[in-house]
Structures are given as C-alpha cells and as structure tokens.
Design a protein around this nucleic acid. Sequence first.
DNA 1: CTGAAAGCGCTTACAG
DNA 2: CTGAAAGCGCTTACAG
Lengths: 344, 344
Amino acid sequence: MHGARPTIGDVARAAGVTKGTVSLAYSGKRPVAEETRRRVFAAAESLRWTASSSAQALATSRTSTIGLVIARRPEIIATDTFFPRFIAGCEAVLAEAGMGLMLNVVTDEDAETAAYERYAAGRVDGVILLDVKQGDRRPDLVRELGLTAVMLTAEAPHEDDPVDTPVVYTEDAAAVGELVDLLVGAGHTSIAHVSGPLRYVHAAARRDAFVDAMTHHGLRPDRIVEGDFTAASGRDATAALVDRADRPSAIVYANDVMAIAGLSYARSSGLRVPEDLSVTGFDDSELSAHLSPGLTSVSTGADVRGAVAARTLLAALGGDARRPVLVDGTVVVRRGSIAPPSRH
Amino acid sequence: MHGARPTIGDVARAAGVTKGTVSLAYSGKRPVAEETRRRVFAAAESLRWTASSSAQALATSRTSTIGLVIARRPEIIATDTFFPRFIAGCEAVLAEAGMGLMLNVVTDEDAETAAYERYAAGRVDGVILLDVKQGDRRPDLVRELGLTAVMLTAEAPHEDDPVDTPVVYTEDAAAVGELVDLLVGAGHTSIAHVSGPLRYVHAAARRDAFVDAMTHHGLRPDRIVEGDFTAASGRDATAALVDRADRPSAIVYANDVMAIAGLSYARSSGLRVPEDLSVTGFDDSELSAHLSPGLTSVSTGADVRGAVAARTLLAALGGDARRPVLVDGTVVVRRGSIAPPSRH
DNA sequence: CTGAAAGCGCTTACAG
DNA sequence: CTGAAAGCGCTTACAG
C-alpha cells in the first residue's frame, strides 16, 4: 500500500487514453467525451489516484496555497482570540476552493522577511497581511517578491494612500464612538482608554476614535495608557489609572483580555464593577459573554473578516483586483459592565 | 522585477557551470571546489535566486512542510489558548529546519478526512495528530495514506497499545493528583470536577486522575460534570454544581477558561472565591496569572510540546523512529484560588 | 571535482 | 474530441 503512489500515467494506461486526456477530464478545461470521461474517472478511482500537487504546482506555477505570517510574541497570540477565529474564517473559504493555508509565527523582523522570501520561492500564491503598522514595509516587500497580497485594516483607506494592494477593512471608529456614547449616556465624564500597541494602525485607529468621541462630547480625552493586548498590561494599565485619587469612573479597553484583567484588578483593590468602575472590551471573546456580569464589548466578526480576506485574495489571484471592501459586522454587544458612576 | 523568476539554469550559466553543480553547491551533498562554490553563490546572489520549492518537491518527493489539522468548533479554538501556543512552539523548530506548517481547521469528520487526503497528495511530508480520541481512526488513516505521523497524548502509552506511530506525551495525571492533594491538604473533602469532552483521551485521562486521587484520599469522586472547554460550559457546569444545598467546597476544572467562567459565576451568585469556593484550572493561560486573585493552574508547556512534537516528527521523517517521548514540563502553578473551606 | 542527461508527475500548446 | 510531445525547475545517478 505504501510507496508507489499511482501517477497520471497509470490512470491513462488503465483507461486506455493519454495523460493529457486524464488531465483534461479532471480540469474540464476542454471538452472530453462523456464515455471516456467515465472510463478515466473509474480508472482513477480504482487506482485511488489524486494528482500530485507538487507536479501540478511546477507545471502551472500555482501552489494552491496562501500564506499567513503572524508576527507577535507567543503570549499575545495565545491571549488574543482574534487569530484563531480569523484563521477559522479563512479556512472555511479556502477549503471550499481547494486551497491550503501555510502559517508562520515569527518573533522578529528578520524572521518575518525570511518567511515572505520562502513564500515567494514557490510556496504560496498570495498572502494576507495582518497587523498593519504605520509605514509598513510589507506591501512593498511582497510586491517585489511577486506575491499577491490583501491587507486587513481597521479603517477605510485614505483617498491619497496609494494602496495598490487590496484592502479589507472594518470601521472600528464607529464602534468605539458608540461605546463612549453609552458611557457618557450613563453619566460618565471621566473616561480612560487602555490602548493596544500604537504602532499598529488598528490600535491607533481605536485610540483616535476614542479621542474624537470624547472631544465630540466636550470631554478631555487625556487619560490614555498604552497596553500591548496582554492580561499583564491590562492589569498594569488599570493599576496606573485606578490607584490614585482622581481615578476615572470608566475605562475603554482595546481588547477583552486587558479588560478582564483590569476588571479583576479593580475588584481586588476594592472597587465594585460596574458600580464604581464601568469597563468595556473589544473583540468580544467567548469568555466575555459568560462572565458575570458580562463584559460589554464589540464584536468585529473575526471569522467573517477571515472569510472575506480569503475571498478577496482568491479574487485578486484570479486577476480580479477589487476596490477596498468593508466588512460590516462590527457591532457593540451590551452586557452588564456599564452602570452610572457612583459618587466618590 | 515581476514575472521571470531566475531559475537554476540562469545561475549555472552566469557562474559558468552546470545546473548539477549549482544544486550540489547548495545542498552540499557532494564536494564542490571552493572556488566554483564561490562563483555559484555570487551568481545566485546577484540574480537573487532561490530554488523553486515546487520543483524541489517534485524532484525529491519531499515537500518540506508538515500538516496540522485542528478538528474543533471555532469558538473552542478561539477560547483555548493551547493551540496558538502549541503552534508557536512547532514553528520555532520548523523554521530552523527550513520547514513549513500547513494548517487546516475543520468542523466535521468528512472534512477532516479530506484534509488528510489532500495532505497525502504531496502537500506535506508528515502530520501531527492532536486531540486523540478513544479508538481514533486517524493513525490508521494516515498510515494508509503514506504520511508519517506523531501523536500527542496526555499519558504514557500502554504496553499493549500497538502504537506504531511515535508518541509525545505529558503526564497530566500527576498534576491533577497534586491539585487534589493541595485541596485536601487545605481541608477540602467535597471536591468536584468539571471535565473536558470525555471522548478525548486527554480529558478522560484528567478525569481518571481526579477519580484516582480522590479515591486515594478516601474521598468520593462522585461529582463530575462534563464540559466542553468553553466558557459557557464552565459556567453551566458550575451552576449545576453550586446552586444546591450540598455544593462542593472546591472545583477542579479541566482548563482555565472553564475555571474563570465558573469562578465568575460563583461570585455573582454570592460565593466568595476562594473563601467559599476554591477552584483550580488547567493549562495556565496568561490571563489566569494576571487575575486577582490568580488562578491556581497547571502549566503543561504547550509551546514545549509543540517544539518536541515537531522535532520528533522531523526525526521520524528522517527515518529515526523513536520510543515515546515524555515532555516533562507539567508543573502546578500555585496562585490565590485555593483557601481552606469555610463552614457552611 | 564537474558535465551531460534522464527523470520527478503534471499541463498545455500543437496537430489531426 | 484525442494523441504525441515539450516543458515546468529542480536532483541525482552515471561517466569521466
């Protein structure tokens, strides 16, 4: 059973046709007589043949796989529920299209570049760019390497951005605005923000949205602490914000994990949540929905974004370059972590 | 810059040698004169050549990539911090060996089988089998397909298991025993267990270990609720256990997420943690370390397991079939979620 | 130590 | 609609 896998030649011989005909019967790129088609399929099935993907890749210079490199520290990847959900979403559309997903987790920039270079050596047809940074050089890099790419961002591309790589985006700003509205509506005036690493455009976009929303309400958006999406940073940022006389009455966190850690810290230092401190998260992890009280958060459809990104990339590979596509699943999920501020 | 990637022929021509020599210079499989070696490298560098992996794959019938299929519902993948940490660990050793990782996320068994079949069509050289189930058919399947495999389990293989696929295992039983010891030592006698899905051998192993440890202490291990690793199931199981007169004074959860959700539920229903209810988790997520109080859990070195699994698979691919290898990083991490039981 | 050539398993013009 | 053959870009015996 091992060893000698059947080749297209074996199938051709068994079916009494040439290799070309077998190929055509499977690809459908040219008509094949119904009768011989049947013979070919029967032969292939009885030999349990499936085309060798390396041979196909060499002949077509298409690998039928796309690449994804994640450049974050393992703790963060483990902590952030975005990645697995995003990947699951990709997979759903890739599997359907018979494509594979090659994944690379890297920790420094050299390794990142190396990963893309390996990709370009005929390992993948295209890539999805996540965690876009200010002045990100990856769009240029992948273009130079001849890889088609799509990138995921958290705001609509600016008119003047000369983005020649397709963009899939969410509008996080609106959701952050809604969160602030909710808080202000409940009576809060002293609201802080714990952001993600501001070198990421999505983290900066959420921070900017926070500033805008506060300003819009005539409030001072001057309490912003930069976190890094880990629980540790959420706790530390919360401590910095809350262990002082003029503590805020509400905190808007840039992700759920930081919010949960912060909430836990606040409680342990004697504050009631939400009575003394209201909190909101971002990205709506499963845990947040099953805490008591639940964490008000914003669901950004990580899986949907994965699916759309994959679909957009497939289209781009097919030569169909699209205008930026908006993923419209961003919605605020209200749970019990907001209350009117207590006097203190 | 696009289009015509240089081939080994271009390099050979530029260096004034044959393609065979270029190949040999890079692979080192046969000696090449220092002088011509230099010429070859110089030519390759100036042409920015790297070997096409599909051509290499076809010529050697080695793809230099390994496959991993994860067969869980997306919510669970997103919730469980094991997978990303495991993958990061794999990556570290794969990258070093110039290998790639192909990932598939599937939701039903047909898709799972299909994924392995695609793998076998020359997409990967070997696979890592996770989440082994009782009577798991994947070892047979992959063997039939001619894929080398290694599988990850949570207990030493039995003598009589005719395992011809290499095994990498942890000894979760000892850690569970330690947890129970800790609880019993603190004075608990009424201890419950919220398990993972018992069709998984790792979940069953933890459950069995719980039963054994309780029995060892002369306690009745009769309160076991089966969860599914999600926060939702952790909360529901906790409710079932705690909303009654004879509630346990401590709960041993099979993972951290269930423990955190359970803890939160218990608190919201008026119990103090740990004073009224002690809890322990499993797998030591980053969040658990930064909660207040922290969650006592067991670190099982997901990343180390990933690294060891990858290394073992590479060895197996090299023809080096090993005896089962124990990953010895399982250690109980004591934090503040255990206290002596309060009278009630 | 190096060259010339066959072969890996497909796809795709080119004829008919 | 189908056959015969070249080609994709490597590696690896086989000679020398």
